[in-house]
Design a protein around this nucleic acid. Structure first.
Lengths: 108, 108
DNA sequence: TTAATATATCAAATAAAATTGATGTACATA
DNA sequence: TATGTACATCAATTTTATTTGATATATTAA
């Protein structure tokens, strides 16, 4: 079932709330930059990202959490490091093709 | 020139700032609902919209201004009325096809 | 076991956005 | 000209988001 079918009063509110949360996570320069860098580099650990985006660690962690909670990125723990990467399908479902390949990669 | 070509340090910041503003405007349930209704109805005046979305007039005006400033909708004054409609091309360039035809119409 | 590194989380302070009610302006109609 | 309607804008308040610096936890290395 496509998104538009099945819209009724009850669904609507939920749907708008969902997209509000997603777009809210995207609506920030820093976070877009993070997405851009993750897209460029694939998998990146926080320690590297701190240098790439030049943010204090706690601030970066804060913004990563927002992206993670919105399901726009994923986290994988490997030893001491936390590696983040884009949640490609999710971002693709949100942003126009015009934004390929800034914030998500070209389709393989 | 596509968006991705011509990205350099100087462009980048501007680009992210631009998308921040656009997505910020979209990042709100009420405003998404307004977009949805405009998409359903084409051209709508504020007086009708007040009833459709059930918002006090000043609140609606506030949110319309945000969408207008972000260039996501347009305004046309006809007599006493201000008619708003989607800025279709702009929204299409921002949102994934998955969001057709909730927040923007099918391509003719 | 101690120390160092990687990272998340917390509390306090600050900043930005949204809401509310009131006021102002333009146009239309009596 | 006086009244009503359609809106935008403003100032004050409330709510939400962001920043900052400090602390806590887990893992690794000495």
């Amino acid at each position: 079932m496509s998104v538009i079918e099945g819209i009724n009063e009850a669904n609507q509110k939920e749907l708008f709330k969902k997209y509000e949360a997603k777009y809210k996570a995207l609506a920030d320069q820093l976070r877009l930059k993070i997405m851009y860098e993750l897209n460029q580099r694939g998998q990146v650990c926080v320690c590297d990202l701190t240098e790439i985006v030049e943010l204090p660690q706690s601030k970066l962690s804060y913004h990563l959490k927002i992206l993670l909670d919105a399901d726009l990125i994923t986290r994988e723990k490997i030893g001491t490091w936390n590696y983040y990467r884009l949640h490609e399908a999710e971002v693709r479902g949100l942003l126009s093709e015009e934004l390929c390949c800034i914030f998500y990669p070209e389709k393989k």
